[in-house]
Amino acid sequence: MVVLLALLAAHGCRQRAGHEVVVYTSVDQVFAEPVFRAFEERSGIHVRAVFDTEETKSTGVVNRLIAEAGQPQADAFWSGDPVRPFLLIQRGLVVPYPSPEAAAIPAAFKAADGMWTGTAARARVLLVNRDRVAAGTEPRSIRDLADPRWKGRAAIANPLFGTTTMHVAALFASWGDADATAFLRALKANGVRIASSNGEVKRLVVAGEVSFGVTDTDDAHEAVAGGAHVEVVYPDADGAGTLVMPTSVVVLKGGPNPATAHALVDYLLSADAERRMAENGAHMPLRRDVPVPDGVRRVGDVRAMAVDYARVAAAMEAIQPALREWSGL
């Protein structure tokens, strides 16, 4: 019993290290972890991280942050998209931090008051299977998902989760409720496959189970790098533009290590972190001083959809009941 109690005592209590930072992130662990390790090496600050699972990607840790609001455990949140942080901002869980590194980030991808700041970005693209779609006939617009020409041959991830939620919310904010609702109905009527994740969409396209699908640039890049016979199409390049989603960083109110949180945010917005995200995760740098590897476009080279991320966040909450009804829960 004495040994047991000793074990419990040694194991049970966390002593605040002082030189550490706690970060929750919905950026893929395989990309985020090397960035945290690089920060640790540079700063000597130990990073303790919580990562999302694929199924609850981008919302699981947000919910945990809200659940823990009464007793905050995290210092910073590095979101896989620029919208989820607004869920925290609206609840008063974020404090502004105008990082000196934010000066190099374009104004469209940060809040003027420092509430949130964007960094390495992804875009929503069409991944097309070249064996199933002849050159010159490929889809060019998000609206092609509902085109009868592609009936039963397209895929999109469940819009209740991940970046697809933001994408659908951006359509509602941009097109209006009536048009976007009709589009969702048309997807069902057109037999669009609903995958559980963007990675699953990639798998369906690469395996030839569908002709094309909507996914994120990092998934698309992975398919290309893996030698799959696919093409990446940036949709609506001659129209409303492609949805660009910077990852974004916020500092959380009442976090246990505010000073080290600022240091981590500074690093996540730095050229070095963006370079690592571009090289390891095919993320598009927002800063102009970061070199672009093969197969990765600069944000400035893409016709970006004009979106107000705060409005998209509001739309995202408003459309939840409709999305759950649409997806069957």
């Binding site: 970060v23 919580v50 694929e54």
Partner: peptide, 27 residues
């Protein structure tokens, strides 16, 4: 444990599951 594991203290099964999203299959 996946819903409440402490930051930086993930058990191996959680690590496998969260890496499964986009991690290299060999890893």
């Amino acid at each position: 444990v996946i819903l409440f594991y402490p930051a930086g203290e993930e058990p191996l099964m959680v690590r496998i599951f969260t890496l499964e999203a986009n991690g290299p299959p060999a890893v």
